[in-house]
């Protein structure tokens, strides 16, 4: 009983991965052969980048502050208060910044993409596009993919900067850490590769979120229930991808940059 269900699940998983790879392949093929619409790209960049700022800034600030406070509480016991800034900075740049910012992007933007494309699917707008000799990947996926790939690292950089600033405010002004040592240790222990690692991760996460969410929207089943399911799955799959991919990217990029 369990084996056939497991087989079915595995088959479904591979089928989904195959479809996902197909859409990603079509998107890259489209980028090679067709000039994307600048207007669609800018619209999506505005939607993903500009309109996600409040969410991402809040996430960055809250994470920076709480990370600073918790680190300080532990380090204070061993008289390492001034190392707090370094831990916050490295953690925010290479791990927490890209992961948390992109989880928020997955929640906000991934859901919107899947819901919009899913609604277009069930109202035959995707079929209408095809009858108008337009490939849905060219018109819908590529601008979203490009915009998410550009916006995610920028939003991550913003979240990291705000998070570090917020941690400095908390550490130096609320918890009484010496500001000069806080900043000096932060600069000393944060390598440029930490920043680059975070930005590379965010770029890949942004692309993954766009491809997964667009795929879920385009493969949406009929009816309101189908759109709801596609939206939920887009957020869940995007978030899981961000979390799982982060681990492997951390291993890979650390080995790449630090040997």
């Amino acid at each position: 009983m369990v084996v056939p269900i497991l087989q079915q699940r595995v088959r479904y998983l591979f089928s989904e991965l195959g479809e996902l790879a197909h859409i990603a392949g079509e998107a890259f093929r489209s980028l090679r052969h067709h000039r994307p619409s600048w207007r669609d790209f800018v619209e999506q960049l505005h939607f993903i980048g500009v309109k996600s700022q409040s969410v991402v800034i809040t996430t960055g600030a809250a994470t920076g502050m709480v990370l600073c406070a918790q680190t300080y509480f532990q380090f204070h016991k061993v008289k390492m208060d001034t190392a707090t800034g370094a831990v916050v900075s490295v953690g925010m740049c290479s791990e927490l910044g890209p992961v948390l910012a992109c989880l928020m992007i997955a929640g906000r933007v991934g859901a919107a993409m899947a819901a919009e494309l899913g609604t277009m699917k069930v109202t035959e707008q995707i079929d209408a596009l095809r009858t108008l000799a337009t490939h849905p990947v060219d018109h819908l996926v590529v601008p979203r993919l490009l915009a998410a790939t550009v916006a995610a690292p920028l939003l991550t950089a913003e979240a990291v900067a705000v998070g570090i600033f917020a941690s400095w405010m908390v550490g130096a002004h609320l918890l009484g850490i010496d500001s000069a040592y806080y900043v000096a240790n932060m600069n000393r222990y944060t390598a440029p590769t930490d920043v680059v690692t975070g930005l590379i991760k965010a770029t890949l996460f942004g692309a993954a979120i766009a491809v997964i969410s667009c795929y879920k929207g385009l493969s949406c089943q009929q009816g309101a229930e189908g759109v709801g399911k596609a939206t939920t799955e887009a957020v869940v799959y995007s978030s899981i991808t961000v979390l799982v991919a982060n681990f492997f990217l951390t291993l890979f990029l650390t080995r790449l940059f630090k040997g």
Binding site: T123, A128, L129, R130, L132
Partner: peptide, 30 residues
Amino acid sequence: LLQVRRKFGMLFQMAALFDSLTVYENVSFV
């Protein structure tokens, strides 16, 4: 198929207009 579909026009049951676009943008889409 995109090339072949240039020969066709199709009116859908519920019209399937792009609801984020204006009438002008819909009609001038191609």
